[in-house]
Structure formats: structure tokens, C-alpha cells
Design a protein around this nucleic acid. Sequence first.
RNA 1: GCCGCAGUAACUCAGGGGUAGAGUAAUUCAUUGGUAAUGAAUAAGCCGGCAGUUCGAUUCUGCCCUGUGGCACCA
Length: 641
Amino acid sequence: MADLINIKFPDGKSAKIEKGLSGFDIAKQISISLSKTAIAFKVNGKILDLSRTVENDSEIQILTKEDDEALDIIRHDCAHVMAEAVQSLYPGTQVTIGPSIENGFYYDFARKEPFAISDLPKIEKKMHEIINRNEKFTREVWSRDEAIKFFKSKGEEYKVELIEDLKEDEEITVYKQGEWLDLCRGPHMMSTKQIGKGFKLMKVAGAYWRGDSNNAMLTRIYGTAWRNEKELESHLLQIEEAEKRDHRKLGKEMNLFHFQEEAPGAVFWHPKGWKLFQSLINYMRKRQDDAGYVETNTPDMMDKSLWETSGHWDKFSEMMFRTEAKDEKIYAIKPMNCPGAVEVFKQGLKSYRDLPFLLSEFGKVHRYEPSGALHGLMRVRAFTQDDAHIFCTEDQITQESKTVCDLILSIYKDFGFDSVRIKFSDRPEKRVGDDVVWDKAEAALMQAMEATGLEYTLNPGEGAFYGPKLEFVLRDAIGRDWQCGTLQVDLNLPGRLGATYVAEDGQKKVPVMLHRALFGSLERFTGILIEHYAGHLPLWLSPLQIVVATITSESDNYAFNVKDQLTKSGLVTEVDIRNEKIGYKIREHSNAKVPVILAVGKKEADEKTVSVRRLGNQNTKSIKLDELIKSLQKESLSPIN
RNA sequence: GCCGCAGUAACUCAGGGGUAGAGUAAUUCAUUGGUAAUGAAUAAGCCGGCAGUUCGAUUCUGCCCUGUGGCACCA
């Protein structure tokens, strides 16, 4: 009689089973249908292959494709199958690593000739073949020497390096699928067949070995993989949806901005785009004024020596633009506003009674970002920050930080960003200042976080070199995350630049500086808003709010009359009296994302009405002009009114 | 910065060793129409830049610039 062990299922039920049964056996005991859909199982929280056996009392959960954790396994299996496909099609290619990632997987290969997009269909076809062969994934435990010898013989230098770097006591496992095998921790499904057809290879890209730019560049193939073809389809559709929102595309269609060769990474704002930009600044200015900030403006160019004192030259001079004039001084174009802010603070003797001192600046900064990083409005070399520096005492850090958190969340809400995550980044390895001071700063900031009651995640070692920081990540309408705001506790700069205040005891003390930006980069935030709203800006942000389009030229006078009244009421309005059909005008202004289109013809002129058509809405409504003005005026109020 | 891809009319893109083509936009004419494209005609280009190969380069090769997908970076 075999030994029995106790197993417990997630639903609380338990059972006695034979010791040494595999996950698959257990699934089969529960039901045949479960054994058919099972792809892995969890033993005491650890995910294992179904072929693994259970030897002790355990908590067991059978995973099927429906479980999110299973999706990772499907993707990882896909990566293996792709690697086999690639090696069979392109002999001599080395495999390195191939994990599952969000929405899919990738595998990095080392090959003299990088892969091209045109190679992907061929690889995909091969993958289908391998999947249809229904190869069993089998797990084997190898000795370190055996593994090294094997991969060396195959010429897999990268794998050898991986094995050599494994800890002494770590079990070395390989997974086989037919003839092909890979060094892998697992787990995997029972067979390649279970992957099904819900995958697609997406793109090729370069990637550094082990993510280090000093290492060799490998070629990476990305794929996406899902439970079935239907899920794959819907994912592809979602990508298409995101592409439609691309701010670079919409920016052109809406005539907001452009870029050109002569100014890489710098925006040419068109009148409509600039109006939107200004609306954001006006909004932020009001919010900050209300919150007790005073606005300043500091020079765009300052002598290099100031940047040496601040420490920026040392760390970032490579990324700073510089210029010189006749006097042979070297001027740096500011990459940050903080030194300027400190200089303003330093004017006049400050007392502890002046603290906290809230100094804001819409400063335009320039940074020589690496060429490969540039991306539309999202990553540019010249951008405007809604910057502010709060000079305060150490005791005020918590309160001031909390106030900033409250302000930022209230501001994001006004744009429909209700879901905001916060990342707390503490001391990095390379830093300035005593640990005692760091303890204090981190504790104060942490206390502020706790006081807000907001959710946050720890981001260890990611703080600025001068202090810990918070990063505010908002989620847009289609679920993408964008890091925007930041709050940094700076225990370094004020001292370096000689800022002081007179404390209660009459002694001069160095203030703490909180460095914060809420939108972050106005350029970037504009881009995010365009994508978030898919170009359908709310009325208060829309640079052009209304177009009055005539049905026939008979109504031109009435159209101008309507426009005048709308303009007088503070609504930004244009008239379209072109010799075109109304359908044509509607189409054009809809494409340009004009929020309100008013069609006027003989009927409207006679009745003193307009026919209203809202963007994204097929319905039209005929209403009295007065009435419309009242409702649009109300709607176009910015949240600060 | 690194790897790949791309740059052709104002825009979106096709083409390809013998100096260019479509749709949209623009202009002109006709048309005055009821909610996502009225019709016709006209004009429009140093085929990103510089070199090389060639009788001849927009096409092939190299370098550079810019964009783009990733990687790395992001005070």
C-alpha cells in the first residue's frame, strides 16, 4: 500500500492522495476535463510542470489557460519554440535569454547578420510546425560540468556564461522539446501543442547582452502570445487603437505642432497647439497661485561656474548645451531651473518666518538627450517644466510634501486621471550627504506618503543623488502608464549654492529644498493629453471650440452673425462658408477634432437656431442660439473657475 | 549613443540604372447642396545631404543628417 499524503485545494477542500503522484495525475483524479485543460500546477505557491510529483502534504492548485499565471507560461513556451525555429532556420545562431514579458515574449539571439522583419513570417511558419509536432516539454536536471560541457560543444558561449554565473547550490535544469533543448528554470506546459495559434511575431530590435551598453548588441525578436486567436486579435486591435491616438499623427491632423531637421527634439508650436499649451500653463499658474506659490523667472543661460558650484557640470556637462559670446565666458543653457531658483531665494535676508517659501517657474530647459531617446513630444531636448522649489525647514518636509501630493492628485483629476500610482525612490548607492540626513529625509517623505493614505510602491536605490523622491505615475484612458510629476527632497543644492535663512535662535541655517514638477514637462503632458483624449479635447482645452458651417451661401450672413455672438461670449469660433457640401465640411472638421460643429441653413436663420453636432456623435440637435451659448459657456469653463 | 527600418509633391504613399506616379490637399471653372468626400481642368518634385561606381544614379555602394521600432540613458 502506497503512502498517502494530504493535499489542500484553493476552495478549502482537501484530499488524501498517493505520495509521488504528478500534477497531471492529480488533475486527472479531479476530472478528465481538467487534465485536458491543465497546463501547470501550483504547489505551496510555487508553479511547477505538471510532470513534477508531489511528495509531501501540500496546498495544490491546478492552473489552466484561464489563469493569468498560465499566460506567462504560454509566452515562455512560445519563446522556446521560437528559439528552436530560429536555430533550425539559421544554423550558427546562438541563443541567450528569452523571457515572457507583458503581452508576450522575446528571445535575444547572437548572430552576425541581424534578423529582418522579412524573416519573421518564415520563423512563424516554422513555429507552427514545431507546435503541431506536439513535442513534450521534458525537464532534466544536469550537473554544472555536464551543462557547461554540453553548451560549449554547441558553441553557445552565452549559455555557458549564464551557467557559470549561477550560484553554486542552484539546480541546473534544461527543458527539451523533441531534439531541441534550452537551459531554463521552467516551468513549461506539457507539450508544444498547448501553445495553440494565439501568437504572432511582432518586431526585431537590438538589445545589449545583459542590458549593459558596454556589452555586445544582440538581436531580439519580440512576439505577442495569448490564450487563443481571439485574444490575439483583440490585442492587435488594441495596438491599432493606440496607433490612432498617436500624438504625432493627431498633432499633424489637428495642426498643433511640427518638428524639423534643423531643430531635432525641439517643438515648433503652431497657433492652435500653442493655445493649448498656454491653457495648461494658465491652469497650472492659477492652481499654484491659489496654493501660495510665487512665480519667478530666471536666465536661460548662466556662466558655467554656477553649474560647477551646483554640481551639475560634473555629472551632466555632456548633456548640457553650451554657448559662448565675445567675452569668452562659457555659458550653459539651463538644463534645470533649481540653481536659478536658489539665486532668487538668496536675494535679501530670509527669516524662518518666510518659510516655507514657494517659488514657481515655468522654465524652459534644454538637455542634450541621446538621439535614440527622442520621441515626438514625449521626449524632447527643449521643454518647459512647471517647476517649483519649496524652501523649508527639515521639520516642514512632511507637511509640505503632503500638500504637494494633495495638489497633484487634485490637478490630475481635472484631466480625468483618477488612477495615480506613486513610486517612492530612496537613497542610491552614489549619493551625497550623511546617512543621518538621509534617514531624516526619507522618514519625513515616507511620513508624508503615509499621511496622504495613498498607495505607493518602493523603488529602492532610485532616488536622486541629493535626496529621495516621489514619482507620480498616471494611467490614461486606454490603460497606459505615464510618469509625470515628481517630488524630490534636496539636501544638497541649497548648501552648495549658499542659501541660508535666519532661524529662531538667530543662527544662520541652510534650508531644505523640495523640487517638484506636477505636469513635469508641459510638452510631454500635452502629448499625453492628446493621446488620453484621442484628440477629443474637452471644450476648455480645445484651441478651436466651434465651427459654424453653412449649408448654402444664402446663410453666410447668419453664420457670421452667429460667430460674432459666440466670439463675444468668449467661445473660440471659426466660420466655414466655403463652397462645399455640408457633409464635406462635417467630415473635415470632425477629422480636425473640432468639438462643436454648428450647421446653419435657411431654416436656422429663420428660427434663430443652430443645428448642433458634437464631435464623435452622429446625432444633431436644433436649439436656440442663446440657449447654446449658455450651455457652452458653462461647459467651456476651465476647472479653475 | 548602439542595432534594425525609413526619408519620393503640402499630406498619405506606390515605383525603380535611361532624370517620376496615385489619392487627398491647393488653384480655376461649373455646381447652392441638410450632417463624415459634388464634378472637371490646372499647376505642383534638387526622389534628405555629400561622395563613389556607371556613358548615365532618384534607383546600386559608402559616409552623414533626420525620423522611427527597440536597447541603453533620463538631473
